[in-house]
Measured scan of single mutants.
Amino acid sequence: MDETGKELVLALYDYQEKSPREVTMKKGDILTLLNSTNKDWWKVEVKITVNGKTYERQGFVPAAYVKKL
């Protein structure tokens, strides 16, 4: 869990989004888990830094590609 009590997951593999509802992740990324009720796709939040500014983006990743921490 992070400092706000949200559950975290670890990306076990790289994943490139294939639709606007998904998010890209790299092996080793730590993501915030938002919803894991679907056994195949989990909703996560990723933080992306571009030119020194951090953005948060929500989307789905394959559940088999992440592990709860």
Rank of each mutant, 00 (worst) to 15 (best):
V66T: 04
D14N: 08
Y65S: 08
T54Q: 11
A64V: 09
N38H: 11
T37I: 08
K39D: 13
G59C: 02
V9P: 00
L10N: 02
K6D: 09
D29V: 03
R21D: 13
I48T: 09
Y55W: 12
Y65L: 12
G28W: 05
K68F: 08
Y15R: 02
F60M: 09
V44H: 00
W41M: 05
Y55H: 08
K18H: 09
V44S: 00
D40N: 14
T49P: 07
S19V: 04
D40I: 14
V44G: 00
L12C: 07
R21W: 15
L8W: 14
E45I: 12
S19P: 04
E3P: 12
T37G: 10
L8E: 07
Y55M: 12
R57Q: 07
T37E: 15
E7P: 10
V61Y: 00
Y55Q: 11
L69Q: 05
V46M: 09
F60K: 02
M25N: 00
V9K: 00
R57P: 01
T49I: 14
K43I: 14
R21C: 12
L8M: 11
E3L: 07
S36G: 11
K27E: 06
K26N: 08
T32I: 14
K18V: 08
N35H: 06
V46Y: 07
T37M: 10
E17Q: 13
R57E: 04
E17V: 05
K68V: 12
L8I: 08
L31H: 02
V46E: 03
Q16M: 13
R21K: 11
V23A: 05
T24R: 06
N38V: 04
R57L: 05
D29Q: 12
L10S: 04
Q58S: 12
K6Y: 15
L31W: 03
G59V: 03
R21Q: 12
N35L: 08
Y65W: 06
W41E: 04
R57M: 06
Y55I: 14
S19F: 06
D40R: 13
E45R: 09
D2C: 14
E56Q: 15
N35D: 15
R57K: 13
K43F: 15
A63Q: 06
V9A: 09
A64K: 15
E45P: 00
Y65A: 10
E7W: 12
L69H: 04
K47G: 07
V9T: 02
D14G: 06
Q58R: 11
G52K: 06
V23P: 01
K47V: 13
Q16D: 14
K53P: 04
L10T: 06
D40K: 14
G59M: 04
S36K: 07
K39N: 13
V50G: 06
Q58I: 11
L12S: 02
L69V: 11
G5M: 12
K6P: 13
K39Q: 12
K68Y: 07
Y65R: 05
P20M: 10
L34T: 04
K68D: 04
E22W: 03
G5A: 14
K18C: 10
N38I: 05
V66W: 01
E17K: 14
K18Q: 15
L12N: 02
Q58D: 07
T4R: 08
V66Q: 01
W42A: 04
N35Y: 06
D2I: 09
D29M: 10
E3R: 04
D2W: 05
D29A: 06
L33G: 00
T49Q: 12
K67D: 06
I48H: 08
G5P: 14
I48S: 07
G5T: 14
D40Y: 15
I48A: 07
S19M: 07
E7L: 10
L34V: 13
M1I: 11
E3C: 12
L69F: 09
E7D: 10
D29G: 03
N51A: 13
K47Q: 12
Y15K: 01
K47E: 10
F60S: 03
T24L: 02
K26L: 07
L31P: 01
R21Y: 14
D40V: 14
N38F: 07
K39A: 13
A64Y: 08
Y15A: 01
K43P: 01
V46H: 12
D40F: 15
K39W: 07
T32Y: 11
M1G: 15
N51I: 06
G5Y: 11
K53V: 14
E3Q: 11
T4G: 14
L8R: 11
K39P: 14
V66E: 00
Y65Q: 05
D29Y: 04
T49L: 12
N35I: 06
E3V: 10
W42F: 06
F60A: 02
L69G: 02
E22F: 05
V23F: 07
K47L: 13
L12Y: 03
M25V: 10
Q58M: 08
L8G: 03
G28C: 08
Y13Q: 13
Y65F: 11
D29P: 00
R21M: 13
L34K: 05
M1D: 15
D2G: 13
G28T: 01
E56C: 13
K47S: 13
V9C: 10
F60G: 01
A63L: 01
V44P: 00
Y13G: 05
M25A: 02
T32C: 08
V9N: 00
K18G: 07
L31S: 02
L31E: 00
K67C: 14
Y55V: 14
V66G: 01
K26F: 12
N38Q: 09
D2A: 10
M1N: 13
E56S: 15
D29W: 09
K6N: 11
N51T: 07
T54R: 09
T24D: 03
D40T: 14
D2T: 10
T54M: 12
G52T: 06
T24S: 15
T4W: 11
T37K: 13
N35F: 05
T37S: 13
Y15T: 01
L69P: 03
L8A: 06
P62L: 03
Y55L: 12
G59A: 03
K18S: 10
T54S: 12
K47N: 10
K43M: 15
K53S: 11
E3A: 10
E17Y: 05
W41F: 06
K68H: 08
L10D: 01
Y15F: 07
E56I: 15
G52W: 05
M25G: 00
K27C: 06
D14C: 05
K26D: 03
R57Y: 05
L8S: 07
D29N: 05
Y65P: 00
F60P: 00
R57H: 07
S36R: 07
D14V: 02
A64Q: 11
V50R: 09
P62F: 02
V50H: 09
A64T: 12
W42V: 06
T4P: 13
L31N: 01
D2L: 10
P62A: 02
G59Y: 02
W41T: 02
K53M: 14
E7N: 11
T54P: 10
Q58G: 06
K47I: 13
Y15N: 01
Q16S: 11
V9R: 01
T32V: 15
K26Q: 09
V46K: 15
T24H: 04
K68L: 15
G52M: 08
L10G: 02
G5W: 11
E22V: 04
R57A: 05
K39R: 11
P62N: 02
Q58A: 11
N38L: 09
K27V: 06
N38Y: 07
K47W: 12
Y15I: 01
N51D: 15
Y13M: 12
K26G: 04
Y65G: 05
E3W: 05
